[in-house]
Nucleic acid binder design. Structure first.
Lengths: 143, 143
DNA sequence: TATTATTGATACGTATTACGAACCATGTCA
DNA sequence: TGACATGGTTCGTAATACGTATCAATAATA
C-alpha cells in the first residue's frame, strides 16, 4: 500500500492477511455445522472453563445481551447448558454438554486436517521456529 | 486439548489463536468506524482492484445477494461506487470513492498503531524471520 | 435468425448476530 | 432498612447472510 513499507509495516500486513485467511477457513468449517465465529469462540472457551455469562461476554468483547441470545440458541441446540452459580444467586454458569464437547473435538480435528497441508510447506524446524515466534507474540500481548 | 499435542498440532492451535486475537483487534478498530469485518475486507480488496460484484463475492466466499446489500449500504455511505462494466452490459464494477480510500488509509494506520507495540516485543531479526515464515505459508496456500 | 440457456445483478423473506434501553432479581453497604 | 450495584434477560432495531425468485443482457444452438 505505501510505496516503501518498513519491515515492521510489512510484518503487520502479513499478520493481518494470515489472520483473514485463517478466519476464512475457520468460518467455512463453522458454516458446515451452522456455527458463527462467535459461537465457535464460545465453544472453544467452554472447553476447559465454566464461566458465568458476564465473564464470557467480557472475554469476547461482547455485550451481555448478545451473550444471552447466543447461549440461548446454543442451549436450544443442546450444545451448552446453564446452571445457577453456587456462590452468587444472581449469576449463571455456562458449560458444554457432551454433544457440545463432541462438536468441539470434531471442529478441531477438521481445522487440523485443513491446515496441515498448508503448514507442511514448512520444514519441521521452520514450524518449530514459527510456533515459538507466534507464542512469544501472544505472551507479549497481556501484561 | 489433547494430552500430548504434536508440534504440528500445537502450531496450528497457535496460528488459530493468533488469528482470533488479530481479528479481535481489527474488529474493534472497524467497530469504531461502524464497519463489519466483511466490509473491511471488501474495502481492502478495492484498494487496488476494480472487480465486478460476482468476483468480489467469490473472493470473499459470500453469495452475490449478500454482496449486493453490503455494497448498497457502503455506497449509501459514500465509501464505494458502482458503474456499469464497459465490456459486459450485465456486469457492474465496484470501486472505492475518495472518501473510501481515505478511510482505508486511516484503518491501516490504526491497525499499524495498535499492532506495533505487540510486534516490538520481537527483535528486528525475529520480526524478519516471522515475516518470511508467514509469507511462505501464504504463498503455499494457492497452487 | 429465433429461441433457449446462461450469466450478472437485484429484490424479498427469514434467521442470526449485535447493540442500546429498560427491566427484574439478588447482593452489598451506608 | 433503604439506596445502590451487579448479573441476566427481554424488547426493539440494524446489519449480515442465505435461499428463492426475478429481471436484463449476453451466449449458445437449432
Amino acid at each position: 500500500m505505501s510505496q516503501q513499507p518498513s519491515p515492521q509495516e510489512a510484518l503487520i500486513d502479513t499478520l493481518m492477511t494470515t489472520s483473514f485467511v485463517t478466519m476464512a477457513i475457520i468460518n467455512r468449517i463453522g458454516a458446515e455445522h451452522d456455527l458463527s465465529l462467535s459461537l465457535i469462540r464460545v465453544l472453544g472457551i467452554l472447553w476447559d472453563r465454566r464461566p458465568r455469562m458476564t465473564e464470557l461476554a467480557e472475554y469476547l468483547g461482547l455485550e451481555k445481551q448478545t451473550m444471552s441470545g447466543l447461549i440461548a440458541r446454543a442451549e436450544k441446540r443442546g450444545l451448552v447448558a446453564r446452571a445457577p452459580n453456587e456462590e452468587d444467586g444472581r449469576a449463571t454458569d455456562v458449560f458444554l454438554t457432551k454433544a457440545g464437547a463432541e462438536l468441539v473435538k470434531q471442529l478441531r480435528a477438521q481445522g487440523q486436517e485443513t491446515m496441515t497441508p498448508i503448514i507442511k510447506q514448512l520444514s519441521a524446524s521452520d514450524q518449530q521456529q514459527l510456533h515459538e515466534l507466534l507464542q512469544r507474540l501472544l505472551n507479549a500481548r497481556e501484561p
